[in-house]
Design a protein around this nucleic acid. Sequence first.
DNA 1: AATAAAAATTGACAATTGTCAATTTTGTTT
DNA 2: AAACAAAATTGACAATTGTCAATTTTTATT
Lengths: 231, 231
Amino acid sequence: MEFNIEKYHLKSSSLFDSLSYEESLLVKNGIVRKEYLKGECLFKEHSFSKGVYIIKKGKVKIFQTNSDGKEGIVYIYKKGDYFGYRPLLAEEPHPVSAVAMDNVIVSFVPKELFLEILESSTTLAKELIVNLSKEFSVWINKMTIFSQHSVKDKVALSLLILNKVYQRNEDSSKSVFISINRDDFAGFVGTAKETLVRMLRIFKDEKIITTKGTKIIILKHRVLLNMVENM
Amino acid sequence: MEFNIEKYHLKSSSLFDSLSYEESLLVKNGIVRKEYLKGECLFKEHSFSKGVYIIKKGKVKIFQTNSDGKEGIVYIYKKGDYFGYRPLLAEEPHPVSAVAMDNVIVSFVPKELFLEILESSTTLAKELIVNLSKEFSVWINKMTIFSQHSVKDKVALSLLILNKVYQRNEDSSKSVFISINRDDFAGFVGTAKETLVRMLRIFKDEKIITTKGTKIIILKHRVLLNMVENM
DNA sequence: AATAAAAATTGACAATTGTCAATTTTGTTT
DNA sequence: AAACAAAATTGACAATTGTCAATTTTTATT
């Protein structure tokens, strides 16, 4: 089966592209710029959504904390992605928490404004449906892979996903510095930190990856692809 | 943390409730009744959606098959649930296959009709968004639980979910016959059949469940709830 | 550059889970 | 009810993964 990273990582689409001039003016005036320091919380699990976040800079991890205090990282949003609208539409509390992984800047669209535009716009609802549907597919793919495979396979796939997340621009020729701490990486994979580190060691010994400080660089993309394609 | 089955199992809502009289007439005339025998396929992974399925009778499993031929069961839809609209809206191929787990009757809404109504209706899009958002929450919850816990815990939660799936009516006092074969159950949990069976054996020895033939009956609901709440 | 604190890594071992080959039970058909 | 096929269960063992404690490396601070 042909591997396609887009099965596991959503290409971000801009939220308000299709609005009319009046609507986009409304948005422009109602939007709030917010900054978060590394480690700061955007929202907590079980709280109700106050609005929609559009990332301008930095990365935000979305996770659930279990009773041991371990974080299961569900997704990492990056520049251009938006989130926080789902529980708002479903009128449910957030099923996850959101924390800045580095210094983050977002455009925040308050709930009232967002709903107002959703009400008036004929296109926004559709855009949201499409986005939701696509996110859904990404999830199903990640979920089935992750529920059926060894940690080694999961780490291989996660490396490819994170490579995409940490890629600076569309030009894929430059080497990417995956700058994620081991606790977060382990939470993303769904394994113990020590187990994760051991898998990274194996890949490192096989010269599939290398590290610079604590950052990870993929050397043999092709080998990882092969692993994932055959799993 | 208070356990709530609705975090892991979607309450089905009816799809076309909010339509106008004309619209519902359109639906009524365009809908097709279809029947599938146990084991028959409704659609295959990677194919494109031909329309929306609303289950009238029976259960349908939604799964991905990996390269070993193992099925990762993502969801089990039952009477009243609808599905197949997501890839249709996203204009993507199905990420999963759908197979009848017993003899199934569905109402099938062909793609063209569905899109026509979506275009004209002001409420349907919103209903879909809410439904999608809720399904999403269910998934996130299942996913994080399943990526972080032991097979025993996963089986405990799965039993509670399946209890809901196989419940005949809202009256929860009657005992439910969970009539699922061990391969499917294992696929739902994401473990090997033998491992699943061993966990069931443990629960059986502890008199938490019992079996009648190959069907499973939960005896001590409370014990399972406690397990899940503390995980 | 030296130092301290935090993060990452490794080792040793235990616990969990998967695999393969029997064996038993269940369901179906005659 | 007997006989067969399919499904479920068990046993034995190997492989994978998690835990805890120690050590090393990296990062931040002076």
